[in-house]
Design a protein around this nucleic acid. Sequence first.
DNA 1: AGCACGCCGACT
DNA 2: GTCGGCGTGCTC
Length: 715
Amino acid sequence: MECTPETERVPPPEAGRCIVRVLVELPRHVGLHEALDYRCDRPLAPGTLVRVPLGRRVVTGLVEGMAEPTPACGQVVPPAEPERLRDVAEVFDALPPMTAGWMRLLDFAAAYYQRSRGELALSCLPTALRALDGVQLQRRLKKLARRADVAPEGATPQRPVLAPGQQQALQKLVEQAPSTFLLHGVTGSGKTEVYLREAQRVLEAGRQVLVLVPEINLTPQLEARFAARFPGRRLAVLHSGLTPPQRLQHWLAAHLGQADLVLGTRMAIFASLPRLGLIVVDEEHDPSYKQQEGARYSARDLAVYRGRQAGASVILGSATPSLESWLNAAPAAEGGGRYRRIDLPERIGGGALPAVRLVDLERVVAQHGRQALRLHPISPPLLAALRERLERGEQSMLLLNRRGYAPVLHCTSCGWKSACPHCSAWRVFHKVDRTLRCHHCGSGQRVPLACPECGDPDIQPMGRGTERLEEQLATLLPQARVVRIDGDTTRQSGSLESQLAQVHDGEVDVLVGTQMVAKGHDFRRMTLVAAVDADGALFSSDFRAPERLFALLMQAGGRAGRDAALAARSEMWVQTWHPAHPLFAALKGHDYIAFARSQLDERRIAAMPPFSAQALLRADASTQELAQAFLQRAEALAGELQAAGQVSAEVFLYPPVPTSVQRVADVERAQLLVEAPRRAQLQAFLAAWVPLLDDINRPPTRVIRWAVDVDPLSI
DNA sequence: AGCACGCCGACT
DNA sequence: GTCGGCGTGCTC
């Protein structure tokens, strides 16, 4: 940053001649200004990383700009008492400043999600960077530079012949770039190849490519595909599975522009990418893109912003797009027009989609009598289908979205249930290690031998989870090799990868798992995927539950029939008491478009997202009354703002209510839903309202903690 | 949020 | 007598 006119002589450096505004990691409730002023002997470019004294410690900060300019620039108001300012302790000169584009992303995200810029900025830089001083950083950079010199030049990779649909997709990407594209295509329609080709084009133009995946589990396979396709290119990965030094290493490779490809989970949206040319958001509908703690940002939404301001295309890929994205990609006349939709109509290699079969549990009972439910949740027809696969040497997968043996244990004589003493939830019975465990707070106990209330030894599991399903299968199909993969098995015995390898190697006949096995993994010999108990989501109070269920079932169905030879007899089974539900009709036809249309119609009529914008104010306290009192005060403040005409009267606040799980780890939780017809109105409202909330709880207490969730995914 | 200073209980 | 609880106050 050069402000001095060239004709003017540069004066000798004089300590504290300039004043820099520095963002430091302080939450907004602290009440200090967003940026703190420091003296510095020279101007510093915005985006420069510095170490500054703050109270009794020295912290890492990010230069926002100059508060008092060098004389020729003179437009900014100097702070009141420049004499009392402290000096910048150290400037990270060895590190290029964050780009203006990154700073804009920061500003946008902080404002949109109601966080302080300093807090957001510093929390999305690698923690290891904050711990380093200038000398250590220099050492790191040297090491990195050495490694950059030896970029391997591999053999020319094989590229598959493109299907016509893929060719057309790529043509649109070229012709309409840069813009935001919604790439809609079923599992196996070749979306990844489209990403790879477009990435190649962008890389050849000398720009960087950012690829986001929903879960850390999905990074290795995509990383392998990109690495194989671009052997000479440096690839950086960013996710929470890296050690702090690894994360710093990869972050620096991206920041210095040495890595051309950056692949990661939602946190990677904040990667420093000085030459960004393309962002891919794979499985864009996945709820994992929304951060659920701290700054509750949506990496997918930020990707759209970032791409737009960087002049980079954004590809949102999914077989079952979020309804938000689907609407944005609709014609302008229907309320869309912001994204361009590209369809990949068919499966590559002509693989057929699995036939969807609904098992009407009502009819099963009618035909086989109520004793058929003894087998529940495996109905006689499903059992027969599993046997068939077993005889043919094919694999099956049973999905049940519930870990453990049974969600609750109960006493048949006195009615005692295994309640968690710290949460308003049941402790789940885990038979494997004979424990009762709360899935909310993690607390547990050994399974009691008798009812703790009345001493009756007859305590029974109610309902079923994956453990019990696995056990039932072992009884029903004694000759089958059954394996269970869920959060519990991946936690105790190695990685998901190694367990999946068993399945790939054909050592498994039936796979039982939660939704984690339904995502992204291809099993070539899998010809049956069954959702054993899907009804829960049909009548949920969460208006997004059907959308999530449909996506999950479509995605799970996509696991079957990846082998073209077996595709013809691949089936997706769903057991339900409500076979007439319209969701299933759409599923049978693999008709996302019809499903989206009906869902959007419902949402439009009810003025729910994406036809309105929402934010949630959450409060945690020692009692429900305290939490709700905070929210009521917040509600009253909103009313005052509206009465004074300072915010739109169209913003609607629902009454405060307890959250769906009211108490977690002895903390009572309540929430207040805010709804506005448009995002802009909601944003304007939050900008006026949220700063007032600090005052309700000032000084900040441990009794009440609160947070705002903009565009919440579950209410 | 950190991190200090600052006054009241059970321990080397 | 000290170590340590967390209550209030400050950080450019």
